[in-house]
Amino acid sequence: MASLVGYQPEDEASHPPNAYPDYVSTRKRAPVHPPIRIAHTLSEITGPRLVRGASVLESLDLTRGSGGEALGERVIISGRVLDGNGRPIPNILLEIWQANAAGRYAHEEDRHDAPLDPHFSGAGCLLSDAQGRYRFVTIRPGAYPWANHYNAWRPSHIHFSVFGPGFASRLITQMYFPGDPLLALDPIFNSVSAPEARDRLIAAFDVETTIPERALGYRFDIVLRGRNATPMETSR
């Protein structure tokens, strides 16, 4: 017999429901049946580690694209990847993507009438270090309109895809900037009902990581689902 440590149940008060009609695309996509809860086994506790063969760095600079510098306000995003007990999680793959300074994604389906930046792809990946820390340099993404409702605009945001230690600890989220007036109007941000949980989606301006004459620093810690305190038994 071997011991496995399962994950705590998702903290439902911290997460959005999938069915949230104000975000119109959920109406035909969110399941109507409640999900069926299953016990954790090796299938949920294990998970992918190296998911990309490509070189993954511990630092990343998206502002130096092919042959030139990206346009826009340079920002440095840094933080830690933690578990629910505040312990750092090292060697976690973070994948990020975002619009450019004009609010346009380098994606063939983005039809927003705003310029592309040939020096900004807006996509990259990096690993957290031994203390769970990560850091990358990018430009502040612009707001952009979307078709959800009349005069709908997404607040500036950066997408994060995070692999925790197991299949159960996967997280995809969006990081926002403090003081953005569009946050109050955004159904995706407001799909998280608890204000204290929504606040965890907003980076904090950080003068400590701001580089003089160069770029503003923002801190964004990512907290993944916690583990149980006690192991469960399984056969081998």
Partner: peptide, 8 residues
């Protein structure tokens, strides 16, 4: 306890 980062 550290509250989890919400899904988006």
């Amino acid at each position: 306890k550290f509250g989890p980062t919400p899904w988006q």
